[in-house]
Amino acid sequence: MNVFRLAGDVSHLVAIIILLLKIWRSRSCAGISGKSQLLFALVFTTRYLDLFTVYISAYNTIMKVVFLALSYATVYLIYMRFRNTYDSENDSFRVEFLLVPVIGLSFLEHYAFTPMEVLWTFSIFLEAVAIMPQLFMITKTGEAESITTHYLFFLGLYRALYIANWVWRYHTEGFFDQIAVVSGVVQTIFYCDFFYLYVTKVVQGRSKMSLP
């Protein structure tokens, strides 16, 4: 464990909590892409199956349980509890356009052709594109509430910190996980455009980030 990865995991946790609290306190999921949250719950489900097979550390186990619980709670709030505030019309990204390539790629590129490895690879590739429905929804509505942008900022920060973690691990312990790194870099690139908007718009203290 290094400070970059710890900060990344904390930033990821903060993002998830920001979104969950926003939905719970405003009792509304307007402007939130339920599809992205479903994809994130699928990412955690397919990646954390090793909860039942290997024990790595208390931190690892606790964080996996927390991420699974919070992501399912978020999906529950969107599709059950506050479903009448769910903006399905604007949440119109065709997730099959993400799932089919990701499933195909995880069958082509993996470390071992075993269920656990293929599912893990699937979760890595899926996480890279899971935010697309949310970013698409923001471009469609043309704006994002500032809390939603904070959510995206911390998600992007988590990915940027993971890249720093991989650089650090490569130089200190020669660690290099090709699938995770390639997919992680692609995922981080998707946030770059948003980061620019976030810094130029939201930091100016405007309540909503409206896209140009």
Binding site: D50, N60, M63, Y111, A112, D177, Q178
Partner: peptide, 10 residues
């Protein structure tokens, strides 16, 4: 290439 190594990252 970390094939089969313990996946300790979240």
């Amino acid at each position: 290439q970390e094939d089969g190594a313990v996946k300790d990252e979240l």
